[in-house]
Write a protein that binds this DNA or RNA. Structure first.
Length: 809
DNA sequence: CAGTGAGCGAGCTTCCGCTTGACTT
C-alpha cells in the first residue's frame, strides 16, 4: 500500500529524493512528457479552438499504466515536476492521463535537491497553474503548426523529407548568413610596425618590445616611416600605470558548459551532454540541463569551506549571479559538483576531465577578484609624430585565477604581456630592430557547434535540452556540415630596419585554417533563401522572442492561448497557400556553358537526390545525361570544366588479377568496382586523381575486413555462424540472430554451444528474444498505418528486397 | 548499398521540449 506517491521527471532525482522522505513516500519518475501530439499528422483541431489531440506514445503506455496503478492506491499524489512551463504541463498531463482525483493532487516544486528544500516544498503544496499549462500548450501547438505546414511545403517545392521549424530554420540561417558574409568579405592588407628597443641601466641591458600606434595602408607608407626611423632618437615620453580587476565567470549552465568543454577539452556538444549525464546519474554533479547560474545555499557554504581550507579566507568571495539570458526559466540549479569537497573523481578520462572543469568553474565563481596592474610605456621621437607603445600587465593578487580562467572564442593573435623593465619617463632608448609586417584583415569566423549554441541562447532560441539535438538535426537534414577548412599559404611582405639598413623579403604564412566549423550545404542555402523570401516573419531572429512574450502573457493570465494562436495561424496559413500557388520549384539551376562534344547546355541544379550536373534539356527527345556532384563540390562555385570531368566516370583504371578495375560515382559517392564487387573510396581519396595501386589497396583492404566478419563457421551446419557485427559478436542461425551470453567467449563457441543458445532463446519468452532485421509489413487495407514488426521465429517470412529498403544507419 | 534525376501516383517524410534506455548487425 502506497501512502504518498511523489512523481518527478528524472529517475536519478527520484532515487535521491526517496532517501530524504522516508518510508511513507514512494517516489517514481515519469521520464519527462508522457503525452504528446501524434507524429503522423498535425493532430490539432483548427476549427475548434486549436484543440490538441494528445496521445500516450506506445513506448510510454507501460510506464503510464504503472503510474496509474500506484496513483490509485495512494492517498496523496504529489506532482513534483520542474517549476517551468514544460514542468507544469507535465503535471497537468499526469493529472489527466492518470485520471487523478482532484482532491488527491498536490503540486509541489523545488529548485535544488536537498532535504530542506524537499521538506519545505512538501509543506507548501499548491494547485496546478492552468495559465502556465496554457502557455505550454500554445508553445507546443505553435511549433507543430509551423513545423508541419512548412515542412510539406519544402517537400513540394524543394525536395522530399526536408524539414523546417521555429528553431532549426533560424539556426541554419545563422550559418548561411555567416557564410555569405565570408564570401563577400574583402580582405584588406595593411602594415603593422613593431620595434625592439634597449636601454642600459645599473650595468644591465633591458630589452622592450613596443608596437606602433598607427598602421600603414601601403608598402610605400611603411617604408617611408622606416626611413624616418633611421638614426632617430627614441625617448620614453611617459609611463602610465593603472590598477585593474578581473572577476570570475558565473557557474555553468548547459550552454556555457558546452562552450567551455568545446574550447578547453575539444568535446562536441553531444559528447559533453553524454558525459555530463553519466556524471549526473552517478550522483557526481547536479542536473546538466539548466539555464540557471544560481547555486544553493548549501553549495555556497561548501564552496566557502573548500576555498578557505585550500587557499585561505582572503580568496573567498561569495557571489550571487543573475541570469542574463533571454527566456531563462531557472527550474534547476547551475551545473555544479554535488559535493564540492571532492575536487576530483574516479571515472573514465572524459568524466574526470569534465568533472575537473565543473569543479574549477564552480569554485572559481565564489573566489575573489584578481587584482592586476596594467602599464603602458609610450615611446616617441622627434623624427615622427606616431608613438610606440609597450604594454605590460602584472598580477598583484591572483584570486580566482588560481583555479580557473574562462577561454574566449577570439582567435586574434595575443600580444605577450608580462612584467616590463624598470623604465622611467625621459629615458633614452636605442632601437635594435624595427619591422613592418604586411597583415591581412580576417573574415568573421565560421560557427563551431558551441559558438552556435551561444548565439542561439543569446537570441533566446531553443532550450538546454534541445541545443545538442538541434545541431544534430540540421546536419541530418544535410543543411550544414562540420568541416575542417585547411588554410591557404599566402605570401606577405616583411620590411626590417636593422643597423640603419632596410631589407625587404617575402615570407609565407598559412592563413584561414578553421577546425570543425559549420558551413552550409547547397540545400541549406536554397532552403534558407526560399524560407526567408516567403516566410520572413518566421525566419526573423526575433520571432521566438516575440512569441515568448505572448506566452508569458498567457502565463500571466492576460491573454487566452488559442486566441494568440488564432492571430498567428490564419495569416501564416495564408502565406502557405500563397506560396504553394505562386512559387516555382526551387532547383538553384545555373547554366554552366556548352558541352563541346554534344553542343548541348550544361546545367548544375538540385535534383531529387542532391546537387547534380545535367547535359541537355528535360524536353529533349533524347534523355539528358546526369551525374551527381562529389563531396566538397558546391553548386555555387563549380565550373564547366569540373562538371564535364564528372562525366568521364565510370573510368577504367587498369587490371588487377586479370579483371578490370573501374572508378565510378554512385548513390553513395565514389567507388571502386572490381569483379562485380564495390568498395567505397576513403574521404581522402580524390576520384579524379586516384591511381591503380591505391585502388588495389582499397580492394585488398575490403577483402581483409570481410574475412574478419565471420568469427566461426561450422562445416556440419552451414546455417550457423558466429559473426562480428557492428555492435559486437552475435550468432546467426537459420537467418535469425542471437545474443551471446556475457560469460561465453565468441571465438570458443562450439556448434553445440550455439545450438543451445538458440534453443534457450527460443523457449524463453519475455525478456530474451531472438532479434532480426525489422521488416515492414504492408497492411492489407489502405488507410491504416504501417507497422514495423520483428520477424517471428516460427513464421517463414521471405525477405523481399523492397521491404528492407530502409537500411539502418 | 552502388549507373537514380522526366512523369505517373501511392505512400512516406516533418515540429519543439521533457526524459532515458532499448535496439541495431
Amino acid at each position: 500500500m502506497i501512502k504518498n506517491l511523489v512523481i518527478v521527471e528524472s529517475p536519478a532525482k527520484a532515487k535521491t529524493i526517496e532517501n530524504f522522505l522516508g518510508k511513507d513516500y514512494t517516489v517514481k519518475s515519469c521520464f519527462g512528457h508522457i503525452r504528446d501530439l501524434p507524429k503522423k499528422d498535425i493532430s490539432i483541431d483548427i476549427e475548434h479552438g486549436f484543440l490538441p489531440k494528445y496521445e500516450i506514445p506506445s513506448d510510454k503506455t507501460k510506464l503510464v499504466n504503472d503510474l496509474k496503478k500506484s496513483a490509485k492506491e495512494a492517498e496523496t499524489v504529489w506532482l513534483a515536476s520542474d517549476e517551468d512551463r514544460e514542468g507544469e504541463a507535465i503535471s497537468w498531463h499526469l493529472a489527466e492521463a492518470l485520471k487523478l482525483d482532484k482532491t488527491k493532487i498536490k503540486r509541489i516544486v523545488f529548485h535544488e535537491i536537498t532535504k530542506n528544500a524537499i521538506l519545505e516544498a512538501i509543506s507548501h503544496p499548491r494547485l496546478i497553474n492552468n495559465d502556465l499549462v496554457d502557455a505550454q500548450q500554445a508553445r507546443r501547438v505553435l511549433d507543430r503548426l509551423v513545423g508541419y505546414e512548412l515542412s510539406p511545403l519544402l517537400w513540394k517545392k524543394v525536395r522530399p523529407s526536408l524539414s523546417a521549424g521555429r528553431v532549426q530554420s533560424v539556426a541554419v540561417r545563422l550559418i548561411v548568413e555567416r557564410e555569405e558574409e565570408i564570401k563577400n568579405f574583402k580582405i584588406v592588407s595593411f602594415f603593422r610596425v613593431s620595434g625592439i628597443f634597449s636601454i642600459n641601466k645599473d650595468g644591465k641591458t633591458y630589452k622592450i618590445k613596443a608596437e606602433l600606434s598607427a598602421r600603414f595602408k601601403t608598402k610605400q607608407e611603411a617604408e617611408s616611416f622606416l626611413k624616418k626611423c633611421v638614426g632617430a632618437d627614441f625617448v620614453v615620453r611617459d609611463v602610465e600605470t593603472k590598477p585593474a580587476r578581473k572577476s570570475p565567470a558565473p557557474p555553468f549552465t548547459t550552454s556555457t558548459l558546452q562552450q567551455e568543454a568545446s574550447r578547453k577539452l575539444g568535446f562536441s556538444v553531444t559528447k559533453t551532454m553524454v558525459v555530463a549525464q553519466q556524471l549526473y546519474e552517478d550522483g557526481k554533479i547536479t542536473y546538466m540541463r539548466t539555464d540557471s547560474v544560481n547555486l544553493s545555499k548549501m553549495a555556497l557554504g561548501m564552496a566557502k569551506k573548500e576555498i578557505e581550507s585550500a587557499f585561505g579566507a582572503s580568496y573567498v568571495k561569495i557571489r550571487n549571479y543573475i541570469t542574463k539570458s533571454k527566456g531563462a526559466q531557472e527550474a534547476h540549479e547551475a551545473i555544479r559538483p554535488t559535493y564540492l569537497n571532492n575536487n576530483s573523481i574516479n571515472g573514465t578520462k572524459d568524466q574526470e576531465r569534465l568533472y575537473d572543469l565543473i569543479w574549477k568553474r564552480t569554485i572559481a565563481s565564489q573566489m575573489s577578484d584578481a587584482e592586476l596592474e596594467k602599464t603602458n610605456i609610450n615611446i616617441s621621437s622627434k623624427s615622427f609624430s606616431e608613438i610606440f607603445v609597450a604594454s605590460g600587465e602584472i598580477i598583484k593578487f591572483d584570486g580566482f585565477l588560481k583555479v580557473y580562467l574562462e577561454s574566449s572564442d577570439d582567435e586574434d593573435e595575443e600580444t605577450q604581456k608580462g612584467l616590463l623593465p624598470p623604465i622611467k619617463k625621459d629615458d633614452v632608448l636605442d632601437s635594435e630592430e624595427i619591422t613592418a609586417l604586411e597583415r591581412n584583415t580576417l573574415h568573421p569566423p565560421r560557427y563551431t557547434e558551441a559558438s552556435l549554441v551561444k548565439k542561439l541562447e543569446e537570441l533566446g532560441i531553443g532550450r538546454p535540452s534541445t541545443y545538442a539535438p538541434t545541431i544534430s538535426t540540421i546536419q541530418k537534414r544535410e543543411y550544414v556540415v562540420i568541416e575542417t577548412k585547411e588554410g591557404i599559404n599566402r605570401n606577405y611582405i616583411s620590411l626590417i630596419l636593422k643597423d640603419n639598413k632596410i631589407s625587404e623579403s617575402i615570407k609565407t604564412e598559412n592563413t584561414g585554417y578553421e577546425k570543425s566549423k559549420l558551413s552550409p550545404t547547397d540545400i541549406g542555402v536554397l532552403v534558407t533563401n526560399f524560407l526567408t523570401e516567403h516566410f520572413k516573419n518566421i525566419l526573423d531572429y526575433n520571432f521566438t522572442a516575440k512569441v515568448e512574450k505572448e506566452f508569458d502573457e498567457i502565463a500571466d493570465g492576460k491573454k487566452v492561448w488559442n486566441q494568440v494562436i488564432k492571430e498567428f495561424y490564419f495569416p501564416f496559413h495564408e502565406q502557405i497557400n500563397e506560396t504553394t500557388k505562386t512559387s516555382k520549384k526551387v532547383s538553384g539551376e545555373r547554366l554552366l556553358g556548352l558541352d563541346p562534344t554534344s553542343g548541348k547546355n550544361v546545367y548544375v541544379k538540385l535534383g531529387r537526390f542532391g546537387p547534380m550536373i545535367q547535359i541537355g534539356e528535360n524536353t529533349d527527345e533524347e534523355k539528358p545525361k546526369f551525374v551527381g556532384l562529389l563531396k566538397g563540390q558546391s553548386m555555387d562555385v563549380i565550373t564547366l570544366k569540373e562538371a564535364l570531368a564528372l562525366f568521364l566516370f565510370p573510368k577504367l583504371l587498369g587490371k588487377y588479377e586479370d579483371e578490370d578495375v573501374f572508378i565510378g560515382i554512385g548513390r553513395f559517392g565514389p567507388y571502386v568496382r572490381h569483379k562485380g564487387g564495390f568498395t567505397s573510396l576513403q574521404k581522402t581519396d580524390d576520384p579524379l586523381k586516384i591511381t591503380l595501386s591505391r585502388a588495389i589497396e582499397l580492394i585488398v583492404e575490403k577483402g581483409l575486413k570481410n574475412e574478419k566478419i565471420i568469427i566461426k563457421e561450422f562445416a556440419e551446419n552451414p546455417d550457423v555462424k558466429v559473426i562480428n557485427g557492428r555492435y559486437g559478436p552475435y550468432i546467426s542461425a537459420m537467418k535469425l540472430n542471437y545474443k551471446i551470453p556475457k560469460d561465453k567467449k565468441p571465438e570458443e563457441l562450439t556448434l553445440e554451444d550455439c545450438l543451445q543458445i538458440v534453443s534457450q532463446t527460443a523457449t524463453t519468452s519475455g525478456t530474451k528474444r531472438a532479434f532480426g532485421r525489422k521488416k515492414t509489413v504492408t497492411p492489407k487495407k489502405t488507410g491504416t498505418a504501417k507497422k514495423t514488426v520483428p520477424v517471428k521465429k516460427t513464421a517463414v517470412i521471405k525477405a523481399s528486397s523492397k521491404a528492407t529498403k530502409k537500411s539502418p544507419k
